[in-house]
Design a protein around this nucleic acid. Structure first.
Lengths: 217, 217
DNA sequence: ACCAAAGCCGGGAAAATTTCACGACGTTGC
DNA sequence: GCAACGTCGTGAAATTTTCCCGGCTTTGGT
């Protein structure tokens, strides 16, 4: 009896690639495909696959959020994130959201297959490059924003990256613009960056701001 | 006699996908694969394929640069860019660099096949979503940085996005910090953004700063 | 050759922002 | 109770951003 798999990726040609690699393996069967997070959630509920292979950057609700929802629906769901992002920050977020594995698309097919088997066997699978990244970021001691910032500070950071002016943020947060400016300054201090530009770059590296967010502005 | 194709993408599983879709078409034959720009250039010279299908975001020299080099070697080279980036900015850059087509990975396989045929027939192929984006950005009148900025201003912008302080830039450019500050201000004005954060976001949208640049800092 | 337009470089001063020091208040945990 | 911490805000100094200016060189048209 073979394991059933749900593929989630917004690039149809890429799904074709997964399929071709996975179906060469005996004991694996792709039973459904989804092109975005919402569809993935629906299909998971109706098809109850043994494993979900999920991309992160997708239109609508992203992969992280999809992972969260699926895990909420089924605490035992096995989800393997397979994405182009080689950022340790994304991996941390994905695992915290409930993923059981994280493999980058640059990995050779064997690594993906291996990870699929590991996750099906109940193990946690992380591809070697991310292992290495995580180790490095540990050594470098780069402050991982989500950790070092207080909830309020993190909120302000998110708004700074998304919204525009200090005033607007003060408005939506119902505090004085002065406070926002103070927080803004404190955040840059805590994160060890000197300019707003560095701030945005750090946020991108850590996956606080994703490429997908860029369209709206 | 079938047309020969060189596939370039750093994700091996994705190449698998191209292959599977393309080889269903009679008259197409994938004769080589490359995982980065440099390898693509080498293989183009040795294999002389009829068509190159190229991803943009790759380690080492990126896709745009690879396009430029290949076209320099062979003015008649037919290159079709196939990428995840749905930014009109990237498309503009790619076409200017000498690509004959631009298709996003979200497009259905038929669109890719169609574009391949069109480019082989000597036409320029742009996928519908990018057509639409281009139209929109025209209507919105968003200043396309590369156009509205003078060479010097563009240089400063690049340094602002990459380096750090005003002083450092003044240093490497051999001008006074004051000038850099003035240009910085002028750039934001010309581009119609209010804050540095908006500036970075616009740069990302237009492909001036790519995700790949983020690792170095 | 001349002029106009545009790019490049920076000074100076006003305006805005960032930063720092400080205090108040509520919560949490020992 | 009290120390530690997060949150919010003020005020004043330091810095940056912005605006306005003039001089300089290059380019292109007449």
């Amino acid at each position: 009896m073979s394991a059933t798999i749900l593929l989630v990726d917004d690039h149809s040609v890429v799904r074709e690639g997964y399929r071709s690699v996975l179906e060469k393996q005996p004991g694996l069967r792709v039973i459904a495909e989804a092109g975005d997070g919402a569809e993935a959630y629906r299909l998971f509920k109706s098809e109850a696959p043994d494993l979900v292979i999920m991309d992160l950057s997708m239109p609508g609700i992203g992969g992280i959020e999809a992972v969260r929802r699926i895990r909420q629906w089924d605490k035992a769901a096995k989800i393997l994130v397979f994405t182009m992002h080689e950022n340790a920050g994304f991996a941390v977020q994905a695992i915290r959201a409930g993923a059981r594995g994280y493999v980058t698309k640059t990995s050779p097919p064997e690594t993906l297959v291996r990870a699929v088997m590991d996750v099906l066997a109940g193990k946690i699978a992380i591809s070697p490059d991310i292992d290495h990244e995580l180790a490095l970021s540990r050594l470098a001691g780069e402050s991982s924003a989500a950790d070092v910032l207080t909830p309020r500070e993190f909120e302000v950071l998110r708004l700074l990256l998304a919204e525009n002016t200090t005033e607007e943020i003060a408005e939506t947060l119902h505090v004085s613009p002065k406070t926002v400016a103070n927080l803004h300054s404190l955040i840059k201090d805590k994160l060890g960056v000197g300019s707003d530009i560095e701030l945005v770059r750090l946020a991108l590296r850590q996956g606080i701001l994703t490429d997908a967010d860029l369209g709206e502005a």
